[in-house]
Structures are given as structure tokens and as C-alpha cells.
Design a protein around this nucleic acid. Structure first.
Lengths: 213, 213
DNA sequence: AGAAGGACCAGTGGTCCGTA
DNA sequence: AGAAGGACCAGTGGTCCGTA
């Protein structure tokens, strides 16, 4: 059961080029979807330090279709099955329990604060892959840093929400891979502010230079 | 907003013959569904102490169709709307937040441990009203106490679950009034034990005298 | 600049158990 | 016998912030 759970987690993009023992622990040879969004196809960096695995950067190109491994799964979290078979309440989201389980099973590259930091970037990739790629490319070409790109991912998500009645929870839950993630607090707040007509462009914009006048 | 929430709560059967100030606070003149199950139509008891409001007893008859007030509501918890309008995560269940809110709004007869104690009795009423009434009548006629009846409510619920693939969560969530309640731990465990072929009749039975041999 | 993640915190679900 | 409910507890979601 362990490998399947970790497989599911890595599918969701927890890892980017895991070192070999992690790969084996995770039972996955493919690149996760998340990774594909946020990091793209990495250039070979032979001299790279082993212990320092970046999850995210802008430094890649956008062609990675063949590299994405999206194996079919019955459920987004294999954990659900384990819990259900035990007669316990089955989690529908990535909970503390899931993180703890992943860690215990040897997926040392997984941790909660790190993943939460990029959930909205992953959401954009799931909901509009083209927009996600275009945004990353644009920021890269402008020489922006990762933080600016990360910040900019909110805006198109808010636009998507506005087209779908502002129900960001339903939007997340309707997507099979996104449904397991909690809606980030900041994204929820931005949707609320924008719906209520706030001139929130400065807080949503990627660069922070678009003042509301 | 306050009155609607409490209205919804009292509809779900939190109160049985609330004293007048509670009634006003709750904004409800009707009897809740829950109450209808567990207490039936109460006999008049003029000398009854005011401060001592029983939520449950077996001492009533089963004819109460006209007395049940099941007003239509868009959502099981009005709280959901409040939260959603504020851009917050909307609770789908009766959470601590809901209990706190109810208390603050003056529904002093509501508290978490008390309600949790009888959730499964309410569930039986929602899922099979006839069976619920029959069970209560039978226990009353045999002169059983409330505890024995309460215990006996598990068995028919487990039987319902067995007919529906043992998915007690789905059974709860599919019922509009039951969906707001967490599945009680003990009910979940009993379903699990029964599904796995345990001779669990002694723990499920109402009287505790049916030993497994 | 910003990745990685230990660690803390307020508030949760769950229910025990002393009271009346 | 058993109702009512204060109060506690382990584990949650959330994220800050010291480290490298």
C-alpha cells in the first residue's frame, strides 16, 4: 500500500528529480504533473549538488508533453482506500495524516509548508495549462524571479473564478487532480475581494507595481 | 441571520419543548424533526419543572405527522451562506463553530456532547421512519429504559448500511437533513465489524443479552 | 533571492466524567 | 437511570521564521 500512496503523491508533483533512493521509495519513474507546470523540462545540470533539490523554478522550456506521466488512478489519494477498508473516515484532501504517512514511508522531500506555498501555481496548471505555460515563459523572458511569477499566478485564477460564479471551492473539487488540495487562503481572499469590486489589482498583479490609480 | 441559523438548528431537532425565551430566540414555533423521532408527541405534563428539558424519552405515542414542521430551506446550515458571503470556507457539517454561534445567539439548550449522543437515533428516523417508530414503541411496551432503546438504534442502521454497500458516509450525505451530521464513530465501527463478518450481535443488540453462541 | 522544513499556534472533533 | 454540559485532549490546518 505504501508505494501506491507515494506514487499518487509524486504524481501530484511533490518531487522534482528525486534522488535515486527517493525514486525507489516513491515507486515512480515518471515526472509529476505539478513539476511539469512549475519547473518545466529541466536542463541537464551535471554539477548540481545532490542534497539541494529545487521543486520550482522558471528556468526551463515549456515542451514537456511526453515527459509527463499521468497514470490513471481510481482515487486521487490511495489513502482513502486504506482508511475506508479499515472502517475509518476517509480523507478527501491532503491532510496532516497524509503528509505524516508520506514522510514515514521515506518520501523525505515532501513537507507541508513547501507544498502549500505553490498550490495555486499547480491549480493554474490544472485549470488552464496554456495560460500557465505562457505566464511562466513571459516571466522568464522578462528576467523576473520566481517570487514574482508565483505571485502572478493568482490573477488568472481569479479570472477563472469570476467566469464560474466565484465558487473557487467547486472549481477545485471539480478537477480530479486539484480536488485533493485545500483552496489556499490567499486565493480565496482574492476571489472575495475581486467579486466585491475592490480595486485589488495591486495585490493580484505579479509585479506589485500596478497601483489602483 | 441569527434567527435563520437557529431556526435551521431547531429544525434538525435540537430542542424539545423549549421554554418560551428559547423559542423566541430560535424564531421557531414548530417541533423539530429530531424531536419528533426521539420523543414523539409528548403527553401534557403540567407539573413539569421548567428548568429541566429532556431532549429524549420513550414516553410518547408515535402519531406526530401534523406536528412536524419541516420548512423548506435552501441549505441545511444557514451558516454556509454567511461564510460563503464572507469569502470564507463554508462548513458542510455541524462544526464547533456552529455550536459556538448557536450558543452566542442564545440557544442555551444546544450543546455538542448532548447532540452527538443521539445522532444515530436521529439518523434512523431520517432513513426509516417506520422502523424508528416501531423500535421506540416496542421498547416502550417492554418497559425498557432510554439507554436500551438508544443502544438498539444501531442495529437497524447497520442493516441499512449492509444493503447499500456499507458506505455509511454516503448514506448520511445523501440525506438532506442527515448530511450535516458527522457519522458517529461507534456506528462507523459497527458497520466495519459487521461487514467483516464479526459475530457482533451482542454489541449491536439493544439488550446486550444476545451472546454470540 | 528564495528553498527547505521544524515548530508553533489557535481552534477542531471527540467524548469523559463530575454534577444535579 | 440518565440528562446536561464544562472541560479536556490528541491531533488539524495553517504558516512563520530561523537556517543554510
Amino acid at each position: 500500500g505504501d508505494t501506491n500512496t507515494l506514487d499518487a503523491l509524486s504524481q501530484e508533483g511533490f518531487s522534482e528529480e528525486p534522488v535515486q533512493q527517493d525514486k525507489e521509495a516513491a515507486g515512480s519513474g515518471g515526472r509529476g504533473t505539478w513539476e511539469a507546470v512549475t519547473a518545466g523540462e529541466r536542463k541537464k545540470q551535471p554539477g548540481r549538488k545532490k542534497g539541494h533539490r529545487k521543486v520550482v523554478d522558471l528556468d526551463g522550456d515549456d515542451e514537456h508533453g511526453g515527459a509527463i506521466c499521468e497514470r490513471q488512478r481510481e482515487h486521487p489519494i490511495h489513502f482513502q482506500n486504506i482508511a475506508k477498508e479499515r472502517g475509518e473516515n476517509a480523507p478527501t484532501k491532503v491532510t496532516n495524516q497524509v503528509f505524516r504517512y508520506a514522510k514515514k514511508a521515506g518520501a523525505s522531500y515532501i513537507n507541508k509548508p513547501k507544498m502549500r506555498h505553490y498550490v495555486h501555481c499547480y491549480a493554474l496548471h490544472c485549470l488552464d495549462e496554456d495560460a500557465s505555460n505562457a505566464l511562466r515563459r513571459a516571466f522568464k523572458e522578462r528576467g523576473e524571479n520566481v517570487g514574482a511569477w508565483r505571485q502572478a499566478c493568482y490573477k488568472p485564477l481569479v479570472a477563472i473564478a469570476s467566469r464560474q460564479g466565484w465558487d473557487i471551492d467547486s472549481i477545485f473539487n471539480a478537477h480530479p487532480r486539484l480536488a485533493i488540495w485545500y483552496v489556499p487562503t490567499k486565493l480565496r481572499q482574492l476571489c472575495y475581494a475581486e467579486r466585491n469590486g475592490a480595486t485589488a489589482s495591486s495585490s493580484v498583479s505579479g509585479t506589485g507595481v500596478h497601483l489602483p490609480f
